[in-house]
Design a protein around this nucleic acid. Structure first.
Lengths: 200, 200
DNA sequence: ACCTGAACACCGTTCAAGT
DNA sequence: ACCTGAACACCGTTCAAGT
């Protein structure tokens, strides 16, 4: 069955998500249109409405898929460095920075309010919370080993995430002073950020 | 001179910025269109092009104006709490959180990559750096008094900013767990975030 | 159930023209 | 110098219709 004429895929839904990710990487957030996505997937510009309620729903799906990949990546890092919690923390932070830099516009979609009413997309909420749980686990391990201060692990995880996320934001927007970037490698900067919050 | 017929303002440029801020507050980032801004200012939809190269340039102007106000607000707080660097830090962080909550969509425009090539808007760059210098000053005072660890004040300021900004992002997107918000006030949460990074 | 094509309202931007 | 109105290409979304 090489050509079904026009009806196209068995799985248009995922094909649309994939097309969206590609357009995002090429044309950026402002270049992502439903019509371009449909064209890239080889269907009419109204076909996406058979699978997504609107553009926001497609964006939610792209973000959700992004969180799934981030989860996988962070999980792998955690498994790889099981011996030392503090090493896990550094490596996970580093993986996060790399994830952001691999595909800055997808990262922006996931974290910067391009998706407008995330509460209405339970899958997105579930997947992002799942990733946060991973951070929380590592933070708890570091609290136990004395490398991070005690107290609510939710809040402590928030601090750790914030310190790295803030760094990534400035990095992606090119707002880290040149002088700093010439002095230290990205990896060293990430480590410095974490040192600020870790117990000596 | 009550009515100049159609030519309207003496200062359309600022009227457009003001209209933009109002639409942003009412309709959000996705509701901000150049045509609506023009309509609100009482001019034709092409009039803005006499003052701004394109939509991005208007957004840059709105953001720049936002940074000016943030600078003013933070300056006032610094003046008010001149006695103790650690108090200054807490109060400035608190002012930042309040600034974000006063007008979430303007905050989003300022910090979340809605403005796409900020490098091309020197006024924006200058004004945002000016605000960062303020943070740096307070951080240096806290390093001197031993409340923050030593090392590059640029990087330390980045850590402090990141920890608060990350918190604000989750707050604005409603991603802070209910359980946490019921237990502690926003103010207490901000203080907790800073305690994570300050020397006991 | 899944997809198409016409249609509608709205958008950013350009351009020739008016004062 | 500042503004208008017509025009263009592009967009999200709806709907009746086709398979």
């Amino acid at each position: 069955m090489p050509k079904k004429k026009n009806y196209h895929h068995g799985d248009l839904k995922n094909a649309l998500i994939k097309a969206g990710v590609e357009i995002l990487a090429k044309d950026g957030v402002s270049g992502l249109s439903l019509r371009k996505v449909a064209l890239k997937a080889g269907v009419s510009h109204t076909a996406p409405y058979s699978h997504f309620a609107d553009k926001q729903a497609l964006i939610a799906a792209i973000s959700t898929e992004g969180f799934r990949q981030l989860y996988k990546r962070v999980s792998a890092v955690i498994d790889e460095y099981q011996t030392k919690p503090s090493t896990q923390l550094v490596e996970v932070a580093w993986a996060y920075v790399q994830f952001a830099m691999d595909d800055p516009d997808r990262f922006k979609v996931m974290f910067s309010g391009v998706l407008e009413k995330e509460k209405e997309y339970p899958e997105f909420v579930a997947e992002s919370q799942r990733s946060f749980q991973l951070v929380k686990m590592i933070v708890e391990a570091n609290q136990t080993s004395g490398k991070l201060r005690g107290g609510s692990s939710d809040l402590a995880a928030l601090s750790v995430w914030g310190i790295i996320h803030g760094f990534v934001l400035l990095l992606l927007e090119g707002q880290i002073p040149h002088a700093i970037l010439e002095q230290k490698s990205l990896r060293e900067l990430v480590e410095f950020q974490l040192e600020q919050i870790m117990v000596k």
